[in-house]
Design a protein around this nucleic acid. Structure first.
Lengths: 203, 203
DNA sequence: AATAAATTTGCACCCTGTGTAAGAATCCCG
DNA sequence: CGGGATTCTTACACAGGGTGCAAATTTATT
């Protein structure tokens, strides 16, 4: 085998196998979760379906929750990517508004609806999912801090990150309640206007 | 014993013992959590300290988490109480602003700081705590819906509930970061103004 | 091919949480 | 007061998640 083939190979087989196994676990788990629900799927089930031992699962995921959460493609990361893609010049909140729109339009709406159902099959998962929103908020906050490093803006950024993630969450929930009647982007737009309206005239 | 002594007695000894045991567990657990941290305290430890069997704990709390959470006095309930205490006439958000102020002033600031530390001793607990914020949001939303039952206001109420809980959470976090330098009420005020300012001039 | 490094696995073990059934305490009513 | 109905407590057994450890297997290096 040639050794001068660039460095995309890294450590060759090992890296590749690792990725492949990682995926195999996720796929096996996804199928089982959708079929039987989260709680009624044991780690042994997943291990069997993925052709490895229970113990080995823990080399790939820290916990059962982690397996599930790894599928829900971190919202935080998406928001950060969206942020980085925006041109400079606008205020934090305005910038994130744009980013949100782009993200919403890129979402596979089908998947969203399916996943929502799995999440609701277990109390623990729902809790974890919710905790993750706050995690997303932190991730986003840090990315925003890199873009607007002035210390005087810190609290503003924290609030902006919170508002963005809140709007995304509430919009997703609304989207699921409506069972996808309106597009996610539309829902987000309305939610945001409503928020703005409330704060504009407090009476 | 007199049976006409009002109806505070309910079922007499049973009820009283139950309450007493409930408290005994909480106290034992609190002490252990503070001393060793959440993760390094087992249910057996708690059962021993509270003088009962491990199995019996589950008649009083659904899980280890529940024991801890039962101490953090539901924020949701506090907000609902605060809401019910406000006079009618104002908008949802304005009403909750007032309620928040009252609540913040009634908080034992010492406890807040101690509890924050325990929470941070375990990943799982932190997650649960965060999930609880969303629970508070729901509780508050439902209470608000009772006060403003018009269906057309539903989304507005959802947003208002979210904003209130968000401000409370961010303020609590800020309060803990500052280690109690400013009063909680002051922090809340500032956070809210900041939020308002951001939405007022989006540029 | 031989050695080093990383992966996989089995095994033993702790902890949380649940079902079950027996025993103990409390209640209620004659 | 006594005794049957309720409710509480406990022991026991067991499923499932998660971790430490060390042997066995696989991949990398030279």
């Amino acid at each position: 085998m040639e050794k001068a083939g660039g460095e995309a190979v890294r450590q060759g087989l090992r890296e590749r196998k690792r990725r492949e196994t990682h995926l195999r676990i996720q796929n096996a788990a996804r199928a089982l979760f959708v079929a039987r629900g989260y709680a009624r799927t044991t780690l042994e089930d997943i291990a069997d379906a993925a052709n490895l031992s229970r113990r080995t699962l823990f080399h790939y995921f820290r916990s059962k929750d982690d397996i599930l959460m790894s599928m829900a493609g971190g919202m935080g990361e998406a928001l950060v990517q969206g942020l980085d893609a925006q041109p400079p010049g606008k205020s934090p909140l305005a910038t994130m508004m744009e980013a949100m729109k782009d993200i919403a339009e890129a979402q596979p709406h089908e998947e969203l609806l399916i996943f929502d159902k799995v999440m609701r099959s277990s109390e623990a998962v729902l809790a974890r999912k919710r905790a993750n929103y706050i995690l997303s908020e932190e991730v986003l906050f840090e990315a925003m801090q890199r873009r607007w490093p002035e210390p005087a803006m810190r609290e503003e950024l924290r609030l902006a990150a919170n508002m963005v993630v809140s709007v995304v969450r509430l919009s997703l929930e609304q989207f699921n309640r409506e069972e996808g009647k309106r597009s996610l982007a539309d829902v987000m737009n309305d939610e945001f206007s409503l928020m703005r309206g409330m704060l504009l005239h407090i009476r």
